[in-house]
């Protein structure tokens, strides 16, 4: 017999009690290494500029001081931001949270995902991590980008989501 029970908003599954999956433990180190490379490159440029242009110490000291402060923040920041990122795979969707000051939680239903992509830079491969990108309609650069996943986990997720996309298309 046809049934059409009323749905109470508070009875719908929420995201408050979710068990968030953390990113790969190597991700923090990977971020720091990348930032150290960039900071060193900028330091070398500033130092070379000082010696070649014979700039006064005061002129180069200010950028170097700013660089030192920025470098400290950049190197400490992964310890603050990475633990606050996480994802949960549910039966019907994937939920991702991120942000320290501005915290956001994004949910993408599997039946809205157009395609899935995994990618890794040489530095990612060194730390055995990868990025998972999920694309929905109307987006361009990847509507949900989960950095810092273990390489194997990213591949497992990609296969799992593709299966889910397939089953949702069959059910439609």
């Amino acid at each position: 017999m046809f049934q059409n029970p009323e749905i109470a908003l508070h009875e719908l599954p929420g995201t408050d009690q979710l068990r968030w999956q953390n990113l790969h433990p190597n991700y923090k180190r990977r971020l720091r290494v990348q930032r150290i490379i960039v900071i060193l490159a900028i330091s070398v440029i500033v130092s070379v500029a000082k010696f070649t242009l014979d700039a006064p110490t005061l002129v180069t000291a200010l950028p170097l001081a700013l660089l030192a402060i920025t470098a400290t923040v950049l190197l400490v920041w992964p310890a603050v931001s990475v633990p606050r990122r996480g994802y949960v795979m549910r039966d019907k969707d994937i939920v991702f949270r991120s942000g320290v000051f501005w915290r956001s939680v994004t949910a993408i239903p599997f039946n809205r995902i157009q395609h899935v992509e995994t990618s890794s830079t040489p530095l990612d491969r060194k730390f055995k991590i990868a990025t998972l990108k999920l694309f929905t309609a109307g987006g361009t650069k990847g509507d949900l980008k989960i950095d810092g996943l273990g390489k194997d986990i990213a591949e497992q997720l990609r296969v799992f989501i593709l299966k889910k996309i397939g089953s949702s298309i069959e059910n439609t």
């Binding site: 908003l9 408050d16 019907k92 239903p109």
Partner: peptide, 19 residues
């Protein structure tokens, strides 16, 4: 959060194409 959860529910139960 209620609106978000309800939207996810409507997306899931809808039998119609979105496009």
């Amino acid at each position: 959060t209620q609106l978000r959860n309800y939207m996810l529910y409507k997306i899931e139960v809808s039998q119609q194409a979105w496009h």
